[in-house]
Design a protein around this nucleic acid. Structure first.
Length: 589
DNA sequence: GCCGTTTTCGGCCCGACTGTTTTCAGTCG
């Protein structure tokens, strides 16, 4: 059983316990365990196999340890079965509706006998929901709309799409005379590949009227479909595109604290607040405050007490004796401990990138010629590039036969002479066939400078078969880089079932690099797997898979993802100099 | 249910906004 499945079961248990009305702190303990399990870079099944003590993990105690072991051993969780006997499993879905939490879900179920959104929709329409105590006409319509949203929901927004949808609103807000500074916080600032909503932070040091004017400008933006809420400091709208956006208006003295607070992640914030608490401090979006001797922090009014930090993020971190932590790391995956020990990783930036090792040309399904791609790379200041068109099995992409591969080498030779100032590697993105063999014969592979391998077909194989297939390719002595290792397409296709841990370990053993495919619709590997690849010391190729010159820009979103996996220039294959890279490519000869 | 620089019991992160309420519970981030 995968970590993600274990986390899902524990989370479901937490949902149901919450509806049941269990001790809130017990529920929190389950959520904490879910976070820990979800953030692990190694499979629990291996950790157990290796005899590791799971209770050393944060939030995992005696009970969670035995839950995890039970799930690994049997695939089932007896306690979950017991709870679902009392509380219908489907109720957890209801809590995903806007404005419906565990309490209301319970009430709907107990009083109306309803467990599904479909039944709930009927009950709203015939007025039964409205009549419930604690509900009213407004909550009823809110529930109805939320059921519709749930139905058409296509997942989170790609970061790339969110950026586009946001642009107009930012321009609109920046025209406001009252505005002094505007930042996008939240998961967007942390560089997540998808975002659920966007959090904007506006600095406005003027009076109430100025703030109101700013809020009115926000809710009055032409692309706003509906205003969810609009208060003195916080407003929330949904754009016509369906993208939810929050705006917070802040003063100068608390802007840094708010930027930290709303950048999150929530998990990171919780850790930081606990750390503050141990130092007699209280952290909120308004700043860091000293809790006076003998005072109960809970009884303090928001913003009460001596403010020790708030204007900048650096101050907030410094107040708890930490250096500033880059947003990409703020996921409570050890960044606070690393910061404390002065061991924050150096993160890769675009100026350290020396080349791009995965791209296509008109020889297969690319839109630009080899020379055009080479010039575009040179214009970016790269030292090298690899042309890696598809191999023959990908007929739909006009994949190259062995003959055409050899013909392409002639053209590559010509371009090498024609375009100077950049080194051109001859490569190929070779298909891994169903049985794990490669789509081109060895004598062709031997003539290539760089061999990428990829799965493009038979994605429905069993996990074991898929893993074995890719392992076979990794063991092939002429293979250099495994590209887009899980095959995921964000919001469109889940990763194919594969034992990624086994793949990464084998790649280490056989000195094969793994790719972080920088296409914003792929971003494959996942940040957790990048973290693991880095732990294992694998070279990571951050490559754009560009099919036209403009797509070479994908390097930046790729690096954003790399940083989330704590990847630094030393881990990135294409941060190496041409000489060092060439040495690595010649490593086996 | 977890945890320990107030340690094996008694705590557990913080605040805004909404809707339905007469003083606040629930939800959300």
């Amino acid at each position: 059983m995968e970590n993600i499945e274990i986390a899902d079961r524990l989370n479901e248990l937490a949902d149901l316990l919450e509806i049941k009305g269990a001790n809130p702190f017990r529920i929190r303990a389950y959520r904490n365990a879910v976070r820990t399990v979800g953030g692990l870079t190694r499979p629990l099944v291996h950790m157990v196999r290796d005899g590791e003590d799971l209770t050393e993990l944060p939030g995992i105690g005696k009970d969670m340890d035995s839950h995890i072991r039970e799930l690994l051993a049997t695939g089932e969780l007896e306690m979950l079965a017991e709870v679902t006997a009392e509380v219908p499993r489907e109720l957890a879905v209801l809590t995903r509706l806007d404005g419906v939490g565990p309490k209301k879900a319970r009430k709907i179920w107990k009083e109306l006998g309803i467990t599904t959104p479909e039944e709930l929709e009927v009950a709203v329409e015939d007025g039964r929901v409205e009549a419930l105590e604690g509900f009213g006409a407004r909550s009823a319509t809110k529930i109805l709309r939320s059921i519709e949203d749930l139905r058409k929901q296509q997942g989170r927004f790609l970061r790339l799409d969110a950026r586009q949808l946001l642009r107009g609103l930012l321009e609109h807000l920046e025209e406001a005379p009252e505005l002094e500074r505007l930042e996008v916080a939240g998961s967007y600032r942390r560089g997540k590949e998808t975002v659920g909503d966007l959090d904007l932070l506006a600095l406005c040091d003027g009076g109430e009227d100025d703030r109101q004017a700013l809020m009115d400008r926000f809710t009055g933006y032409s692309e706003v479909d509906r205003v969810e809420m609009s208060g003195a400091t916080r407003g929330s709208v949904v754009l016509r595109s369906g993208l939810p956006i929050d705006l917070r208006i802040l003063g100068r003295s608390d802007y840094g604290a708010a930027l930290h607070y709303f950048t999150g992640s929530k998990e990171h914030n919780v850790e930081l607040r606990k750390r503050a608490q141990r130092r007699g401090l209280k952290v909120s979006e308004y700043g860091v405050f000293r809790v006076p001797e003998g005072t109960d922090a809970d009884r303090m009014e928001p913003g009460e007490g001596e403010r020790v930090a708030g204007e900048t993020e650096e101050e907030v971190f410094a107040a708890v004796d930490l250096p500033w932590i880059p947003p990409a790391l703020r996921e409570n995956r050890g960044e606070i401990q690393a910061a404390e020990g002065g061991e924050l990783p150096e993160l890769v930036t675009v100026d350290r990138i020396r080349g791009d090792l995965h791209m296509h040309s008109t020889w297969s399904d690319g839109k630009a010629s080899i020379a055009e791609m080479a010039r575009a790379c040179r214009d970016r200041g790269y030292e090298y590039l690899a042309i890696t068109d598809h191999s023959q099995d990908v007929t739909i992409a006009n994949g190259l036969t062995p003959e055409r591969v050899r013909e392409q080498w002639d053209e590559i030779e010509r371009v090498r002479e024609e375009v100077d100032g950049i080194h051109l590697f001859r490569g190929c993105e070779v298909d891994i066939l169903k049985d794990g063999s490669l789509d081109l014969p060895d004598d062709v592979l031997e003539g290539l400078d760089i061999v990428l391998v990829a799965v493009h077909s038979h994605m429905g194989l069993s996990r074991d078969a898929q893993t074995e297939r890719v392992l076979a390719a990794i063991r092939h002595p002429l293979v250099d880089i495994l590209v887009h290792p899980t095959g995921r397409l964000l919001n469109r296709r889940e990763p194919y079932p594969i034992d990624i841990e086994a793949i990464l370990e084998a790649a280490g053993e056989h000195e094969v690099a793994v790719e972080l495919n920088a296409n914003p619709r792929r971003l494959d590997l996942h940040d957790r797997h990048l973290f693991r690849a880095r732990e294992l010391g694998l070279p990571i190729s951050v490559a754009t898979d560009a099919h036209r010159e403009s797509q070479l820009d994908f390097m930046e979103p790729g690096l954003e993802q790399a940083r989330r996996g704590w990847v630094g220039p030393d881990h990135v294959l294409n941060c190496r100099s041409l000489d060092d890279l060439t040495d690595w490519l010649d490593r086996r000869s």
